[in-house]
Amino acid sequence: MPNHSGFRQNRKPQKPKEKPTIDENNPVLKAFKSYAAELDDKHDRYERIVKLSRDITIESKRIIFSLHSIDSRKGNKEKVLEEAQQRLEKLIENNFKAVAKELKDQDPYHYRGAYSPGLQEFIEAYTFMEYMKYADEAQANGNNVEKSVSDWIDLQKQMHYTDLQQSEENEKVDNEENGQKGYSFFVDPTEYILGVSDLTGELMRRCINSLGSGETDTCLSTCKVLQQFYTGYISLNVHRCRELSRKIYTMRQSVLKSENVCYNVKVRGGEAAKWGSVFDNKPGDDIDEGFY
């Protein structure tokens, strides 16, 4: 039977899907076309920055992880620190430069949501590296630390430094007029403060880890640093920033945890505390943010 009545036969020949024909003369559509272009440009830039930021986050977390492997018994401190520093510098030199390039002539606050996770993680890694470098050393020698943790102005300078190099290259290529401009990655103080508050989580972790490896001195010194950070943070009087108050709450838990460790070290000696700390943790206390 040539004439099937199956529904396949009923199907009309498919029209090629027409794009909605746009009346070129319609002023509304003309205007919206330009709006569409502008919105797309915004969204694309946002997505590109999100990608860059994600790379920064991953690399920063890895650096933090590697910094945790520093162990006085293994004597790997110099090597790990040097490597971490190099990797951090690489982040400044490459990734942040790319973000800064995207943000050139833009309002950095507009794309803040895109880059802030990366920036915070980077600040955490950077300050943790500095902690390992200065504070740990001093504790070993019993000296006072000469260097203090970088603040956002120091970081800002670093991020500008890399970009100045870039602009010097430009100078050679471009006209001399444009070369002077140079652009920098804008380090927002709020992001800095939020990033440093993550550092306390790492310090707590280091405190616990060093208990496991029997370095009770490290426990005590990290605990002290934590307490000082906590004092600094509760001295802040910040409205509007819910994120910060949440972080301070978490920080308090970290402080309590490490204080508890120190307590156990004191009353039971290093060996026993290792066991004690396991039971002392209340189930809700675990505020591990995870590495990935």
Partner: peptide, 11 residues
């Protein structure tokens, strides 16, 4: 030790 955390930052 206290030098590491510069309380000026918070100020």
């Amino acid at each position: 030790m206290s030098n590491f955390i510069n309380l000026n930052i918070f100020e």
